[in-house]
Protein backbone atom coordinates (compact mmCIF):
# COMPACT_ATOMS: atom_id res chain seq x y z
CA UNK A 1 0.00 0.00 0.00
CA UNK A 2 1.15 3.56 -0.78
CA UNK A 3 1.90 5.80 2.20
CA UNK A 4 -1.11 8.04 2.79
CA UNK A 5 -0.66 11.72 1.99
CA UNK A 6 -3.04 12.89 4.66
CA UNK A 7 -3.79 11.08 7.94
CA UNK A 8 -6.62 12.52 9.97
CA UNK A 9 -6.99 11.13 13.49
CA UNK A 10 -9.91 11.74 15.84
CA UNK A 11 -10.28 15.30 14.55
CA UNK A 12 -12.92 17.32 16.40
CA UNK A 13 -14.29 20.84 16.46
CA UNK A 14 -16.83 22.14 18.93
CA UNK A 15 -18.76 25.38 18.45
CA UNK A 16 -20.16 26.07 21.89
CA UNK A 17 -21.98 22.86 22.66
CA UNK A 18 -22.28 21.73 19.03
CA UNK A 19 -19.76 19.16 17.82
CA UNK A 20 -19.51 20.28 14.20
CA UNK A 21 -16.80 17.67 13.60
CA UNK A 22 -16.69 14.77 16.04
CA UNK A 23 -13.79 12.31 16.25
CA UNK A 24 -13.35 11.97 12.51
CA UNK A 25 -10.49 9.78 11.23
CA UNK A 26 -9.50 8.80 7.71
CA UNK A 27 -6.46 8.47 5.44
CA UNK A 28 -6.13 9.81 1.90
CA UNK A 29 -3.87 8.33 -0.74
CA UNK A 30 -1.89 10.63 -3.02
CA UNK A 31 -3.11 11.31 -6.53
CA UNK A 32 -6.65 10.16 -5.87
CA UNK A 33 -9.98 11.92 -5.93
CA UNK A 34 -11.51 11.75 -2.48
CA UNK A 35 -14.98 13.04 -1.79
CA UNK A 36 -16.53 14.11 1.47
CA UNK A 37 -20.30 13.96 1.38
CA UNK A 38 -23.10 14.30 3.86
CA UNK A 39 -26.37 16.15 4.43
CA UNK A 40 -26.48 19.93 5.03
CA UNK A 41 -24.81 20.84 8.30
CA UNK A 42 -22.95 17.52 8.48
CA UNK A 43 -19.67 19.33 9.12
CA UNK A 44 -18.01 19.09 5.69
CA UNK A 45 -17.00 22.73 5.45
CA UNK A 46 -15.86 22.73 9.06
CA UNK A 47 -13.70 19.69 8.31
CA UNK A 48 -12.12 21.50 5.35
CA UNK A 49 -11.51 24.52 7.54
CA UNK A 50 -9.74 22.30 10.08
CA UNK A 51 -7.61 20.63 7.42
CA UNK A 52 -6.52 23.95 5.91
CA UNK A 53 -5.85 25.70 9.23
CA UNK A 54 -8.72 28.19 9.00
CA UNK A 55 -9.99 26.74 12.30
CA UNK A 56 -7.86 25.22 15.04
CA UNK A 57 -9.17 21.79 16.04
CA UNK A 58 -10.57 21.20 19.53
CA UNK A 59 -8.94 17.76 19.51
CA UNK A 60 -7.26 15.28 17.21
CA UNK A 61 -4.45 15.71 14.72
CA UNK A 62 -3.59 15.95 11.05
CA UNK A 63 -0.47 14.50 9.45
CA UNK A 64 0.35 15.80 5.97
CA UNK A 65 3.16 14.22 3.95
CA UNK A 66 4.49 12.54 7.07
CA UNK A 67 4.65 15.71 9.22
CA UNK A 68 2.27 16.67 12.00
CA UNK A 69 0.63 19.90 10.80
CA UNK A 70 -2.08 20.20 13.46
CA UNK A 71 -2.70 23.81 14.40
CA UNK A 72 -0.55 25.38 11.67
CA UNK A 73 -1.82 28.61 10.13
CA UNK A 74 -3.41 28.56 6.66
CA UNK A 75 -0.43 30.27 5.01
CA UNK A 76 1.93 27.71 6.51
CA UNK A 77 -0.19 24.86 5.20
CA UNK A 78 -0.33 26.54 1.81
CA UNK A 79 3.48 26.59 1.85
CA UNK A 80 3.44 22.85 2.50
CA UNK A 81 1.30 22.25 -0.55
CA UNK A 82 -2.35 22.69 0.34
CA UNK A 83 -4.70 24.69 -1.84
CA UNK A 84 -8.42 25.18 -1.51
CA UNK A 85 -11.56 26.87 -2.73
CA UNK A 86 -14.55 28.05 -0.72
CA UNK A 87 -18.23 27.18 -0.67
CA UNK A 88 -19.10 30.85 -0.17
CA UNK A 89 -16.71 32.51 -2.60
CA UNK A 90 -13.61 34.18 -1.17
CA UNK A 91 -12.66 35.96 -4.38
CA UNK A 92 -10.72 39.25 -4.24
CA UNK A 93 -13.42 41.39 -5.76
CA UNK A 94 -11.21 44.48 -5.55
CA UNK A 95 -8.85 43.00 -8.16
CA UNK A 96 -8.88 41.77 -11.72
CA UNK A 97 -9.43 38.11 -12.50
CA UNK A 98 -5.83 37.75 -13.60
CA UNK A 99 -4.55 39.38 -10.41
CA UNK A 100 -6.64 36.97 -8.36
CA UNK A 101 -4.78 34.09 -9.95
CA UNK A 102 -1.45 35.89 -9.59
CA UNK A 103 -2.09 36.07 -5.84
CA UNK A 104 -2.37 32.30 -5.91
CA UNK A 105 1.28 32.23 -7.03
CA UNK A 106 2.30 34.30 -4.02
CA UNK A 107 4.49 31.66 -2.44
CA UNK A 108 6.51 31.27 -5.60
CA UNK A 109 7.04 34.99 -6.11
CA UNK A 110 9.69 37.36 -4.87
CA UNK A 111 7.71 39.20 -2.25
CA UNK A 112 10.41 41.44 -0.72
CA UNK A 113 9.29 44.95 0.19
CA UNK A 114 12.39 46.81 -0.94
CA UNK A 115 12.60 45.14 -4.34
CA UNK A 116 8.88 45.85 -4.73
CA UNK A 117 9.14 49.53 -3.85
CA UNK A 118 12.10 50.14 -6.16
CA UNK A 119 10.78 47.78 -8.82
CA UNK A 120 14.03 45.90 -9.37
CA UNK A 121 14.53 44.51 -12.88
CA UNK A 122 14.29 40.98 -11.51
CA UNK A 123 10.97 41.78 -9.94
CA UNK A 124 9.68 43.28 -13.17
CA UNK A 125 10.72 40.13 -15.02
CA UNK A 126 9.00 38.02 -12.36
CA UNK A 127 5.83 40.04 -12.87
CA UNK A 128 5.75 39.26 -16.57
CA UNK A 129 6.27 35.58 -15.85
CA UNK A 130 3.53 35.70 -13.20
CA UNK A 131 1.11 37.27 -15.66
CA UNK A 132 1.81 34.67 -18.30
CA UNK A 133 1.46 31.75 -15.93
CA UNK A 134 -1.73 33.14 -14.41
CA UNK A 135 -3.18 33.59 -17.89
CA UNK A 136 -2.24 29.98 -18.66
CA UNK A 137 -4.04 28.79 -15.53
CA UNK A 138 -7.13 30.77 -16.48
CA UNK A 139 -7.09 29.09 -19.88
CA UNK A 140 -6.62 25.73 -18.17
CA UNK A 141 -9.80 26.11 -16.10
CA UNK A 142 -11.70 27.47 -19.10
CA UNK A 143 -11.67 31.17 -18.26
CA UNK A 144 -9.89 32.32 -21.41
CA UNK A 145 -12.62 34.81 -22.21
CA UNK A 146 -12.17 36.57 -18.83
CA UNK A 147 -8.45 37.34 -19.13
CA UNK A 148 -9.13 41.07 -19.13
CA UNK A 149 -12.08 41.03 -16.73
CA UNK A 150 -12.45 42.52 -13.29
CA UNK A 151 -13.46 39.88 -10.75
CA UNK A 152 -16.59 41.79 -9.73
CA UNK A 153 -17.85 41.70 -13.31
CA UNK A 154 -17.79 37.91 -13.63
CA UNK A 155 -20.72 35.51 -13.32
CA UNK A 156 -20.96 33.04 -10.45
CA UNK A 157 -19.91 29.94 -12.39
CA UNK A 158 -16.78 31.68 -13.66
CA UNK A 159 -15.87 32.83 -10.15
CA UNK A 160 -16.00 29.24 -8.92
CA UNK A 161 -13.43 28.34 -11.55
CA UNK A 162 -11.43 31.46 -10.80
CA UNK A 163 -10.95 30.18 -7.25
CA UNK A 164 -9.73 26.87 -8.64
CA UNK A 165 -7.25 28.67 -10.90
CA UNK A 166 -6.04 30.71 -7.92
CA UNK A 167 -5.57 27.56 -5.86
CA UNK A 168 -3.66 25.93 -8.72
CA UNK A 169 -1.34 28.94 -8.79
CA UNK A 170 0.24 27.55 -5.63
CA UNK A 171 0.91 24.22 -7.38
CA UNK A 172 -0.78 22.30 -4.55
CA UNK A 173 -0.15 18.66 -3.81
CA UNK A 174 -3.50 18.54 -2.07
CA UNK A 175 -6.42 20.49 -3.50
CA UNK A 176 -9.61 20.84 -1.46
CA UNK A 177 -12.73 21.96 -3.31
CA UNK A 178 -15.81 22.98 -1.31
CA UNK A 179 -18.87 22.49 -3.51
CA UNK A 180 -17.26 23.55 -6.81
CA UNK A 181 -20.39 22.62 -8.76
CA UNK A 182 -22.99 24.31 -6.54
CA UNK A 183 -25.10 26.67 -8.59
CA UNK A 184 -23.54 25.58 -11.87
CA UNK A 185 -25.47 24.35 -14.88
CA UNK A 186 -25.03 20.97 -16.54
CA UNK A 187 -22.30 22.08 -18.97
CA UNK A 188 -20.34 23.93 -16.31
CA UNK A 189 -20.58 20.92 -13.99
CA UNK A 190 -19.23 18.67 -16.71
CA UNK A 191 -16.33 21.07 -17.17
CA UNK A 192 -15.57 20.85 -13.44
CA UNK A 193 -15.78 17.07 -13.67
CA UNK A 194 -13.26 16.98 -16.50
CA UNK A 195 -11.03 19.42 -14.63
CA UNK A 196 -10.96 17.24 -11.50
CA UNK A 197 -10.08 14.17 -13.55
CA UNK A 198 -7.27 16.03 -15.30
CA UNK A 199 -5.89 17.32 -12.00
CA UNK A 200 -5.86 13.86 -10.42
CA UNK A 201 -4.14 12.49 -13.51
CA UNK A 202 -1.44 15.11 -13.12
CA UNK A 203 -0.78 13.79 -9.60
CA UNK A 204 -2.75 16.25 -7.47
CA UNK A 205 -4.69 14.71 -4.58
CA UNK A 206 -8.20 16.10 -4.70
CA UNK A 207 -10.63 16.43 -1.79
CA UNK A 208 -14.07 17.16 -3.13
CA UNK A 209 -16.98 18.30 -1.00
CA UNK A 210 -20.08 18.15 -3.15
CA UNK A 211 -23.83 17.57 -3.06
CA UNK A 212 -24.08 16.68 -6.73
CA UNK A 213 -24.09 12.89 -6.42
CA UNK A 214 -23.67 12.23 -10.11
CA UNK A 215 -20.43 14.21 -10.04
CA UNK A 216 -19.27 12.58 -6.80
CA UNK A 217 -20.05 9.01 -7.83
CA UNK A 218 -18.46 9.58 -11.22
CA UNK A 219 -15.07 10.97 -10.22
CA UNK A 220 -14.37 9.63 -6.73
CA UNK A 221 -11.82 6.94 -5.97
CA UNK A 222 -12.78 7.13 -2.33
CA UNK A 223 -15.70 8.65 -0.42
CA UNK A 224 -16.03 9.65 3.24
CA UNK A 225 -19.58 10.15 4.49
CA UNK A 226 -20.25 12.54 7.36
CA UNK A 227 -23.44 12.93 9.34
CA UNK A 228 -23.91 15.16 12.40
CA UNK A 229 -20.15 15.70 12.52
CA UNK A 230 -19.33 12.01 12.70
CA UNK A 231 -17.91 9.73 10.06
CA UNK A 232 -20.73 7.47 8.99
CA UNK A 233 -18.70 5.26 6.68
CA UNK A 234 -16.10 5.37 3.92
CA UNK A 235 -15.23 3.37 0.85
CA UNK A 236 -15.59 3.27 -2.90
CA UNK A 237 -18.57 4.80 -4.67
CA UNK A 238 -20.11 1.35 -4.97
CA UNK A 239 -19.68 0.60 -1.26
CA UNK A 240 -21.02 3.95 -0.13
CA UNK A 241 -23.99 3.92 -2.49
CA UNK A 242 -25.21 0.63 -1.11
CA UNK A 243 -24.53 1.31 2.54
CA UNK A 244 -27.88 1.31 4.38
CA UNK A 245 -26.60 3.90 6.88
CA UNK A 246 -25.92 6.35 4.07
CA UNK A 247 -29.32 5.85 2.52
CA UNK A 248 -30.87 6.32 5.96
CA UNK A 249 -28.93 9.53 6.63
CA UNK A 250 -29.90 11.04 3.29
CA UNK A 251 -33.53 9.96 3.37
CA UNK A 252 -33.77 11.18 6.95
CA UNK A 253 -32.79 14.71 5.86
CA UNK A 254 -32.20 16.49 2.59
CA UNK A 255 -32.59 14.46 -0.58
CA UNK A 256 -29.31 14.19 -2.48
CA UNK A 257 -29.65 15.38 -6.05
CA UNK A 258 -29.74 12.77 -8.76
CA UNK A 259 -28.29 9.86 -6.81
Amino acid sequence: MIAPQLCVTALSKAFGGVMAVDQVSFDLEPGKVNSIIGPNGAGKTTLLNLLTGVYAPSAGNVVFDGADVTGLAPHQLAARGMGRTFQNLQVFFNMSALENVMVGRHLRERAGWLAAMLRSPRLAAGERESREEAAGLMQFVGLGEYLGAEADAMPYGALKRLEIARALGGRPKLLLLDEPAAGLNQTETQAINALIVRLAQSGVTVVLVEHNMRLVMGVSDHIVVLDYGRKLCEGSAEQVRNDPRVIEAYLGSAEPEAC
Partner: peptide, 30 residues
Protein backbone atom coordinates in the same frame (compact mmCIF):
# COMPACT_ATOMS: atom_id res chain seq x y z
CA UNK B 1 7.32 53.94 -4.79
CA UNK B 2 3.63 53.53 -3.99
CA UNK B 3 2.78 52.69 -7.60
CA UNK B 4 5.62 50.18 -7.73
CA UNK B 5 4.51 48.56 -4.53
CA UNK B 6 0.90 48.20 -5.57
CA UNK B 7 1.87 46.37 -8.73
CA UNK B 8 4.16 43.89 -7.04
CA UNK B 9 3.64 40.59 -5.25
CA UNK B 10 3.78 42.39 -1.89
CA UNK B 11 1.22 44.97 -3.01
CA UNK B 12 -1.08 42.34 -4.46
CA UNK B 13 -0.90 40.52 -1.14
CA UNK B 14 -2.15 43.69 0.59
CA UNK B 15 -5.02 44.15 -1.81
CA UNK B 16 -5.87 40.47 -1.48
CA UNK B 17 -6.06 40.85 2.30
CA UNK B 18 -8.50 43.69 1.81
CA UNK B 19 -10.58 41.62 -0.60
CA UNK B 20 -10.72 38.46 1.52
CA UNK B 21 -8.41 37.84 4.42
CA UNK B 22 -9.03 34.09 4.52
CA UNK B 23 -8.72 33.87 0.74
CA UNK B 24 -5.34 35.58 1.03
CA UNK B 25 -4.19 33.33 3.85
CA UNK B 26 -4.93 30.09 2.06
CA UNK B 27 -3.02 31.51 -0.92
CA UNK B 28 0.05 31.54 1.32
CA UNK B 29 -0.03 35.16 2.50
CA UNK B 30 1.08 35.76 6.06
Amino acid sequence: IALNLIESPAGRALRALHGSEVGAQVSGID
